[in-house]
Amino acid sequence: MDTIKGRVRKFGDNIDTDTITPANTLQLPTEEMIKHAFSPVFPNFYETVQEGDIIVAGNNFGCGSAREQAIDVVKHFGISFIVCESMARTYFRNCIALGIYPLLAEGISSFFSEGDEIEINFQNEEIKNVKTGETAPFKPLSGLPKQIFDGGGILPLLKEKLLKDS
């Protein structure tokens, strides 16, 4: 994983878990739930999203509830990276546990508009707007969260433990 490129899907500040997955859709099967994902700020998001898109957002992405459906829908869309100024901690944890790579970079939100091309360089630890050439540094995952992410998330880890114990 040296360099990743993708199309930017642009969000603002405080995108909460009720925006990502409205409470009254949580009981629906994932294929139905995704039709409502992000609907309060981005109606019909599911129709325009493409595999490999990258979310770029402002502060406090994923604030609110600890519900994992808010991760499931993003994964379901084929989005593997979320770039934001800051992320709510339960959402951050769930990203690590379930295999979405969170990238936090100060001031990043103002670099991008909807539809721009974004390049993430893991070697240089840099995020770039391909069109404007603007770059910002980010800190890649390290320590225990990196180990868990690299191992495929928390459930593969649990599976391993269960196998060992049996």
Binding site: A66, E68, I154, L155, L158
Partner: peptide
Amino acid sequence: GIGVSEMAYVIQTGELW
């Protein structure tokens, strides 16, 4: 608060990062 996948890990192992 944590997500349910992490909770599954906690229930089995009693630990978390």
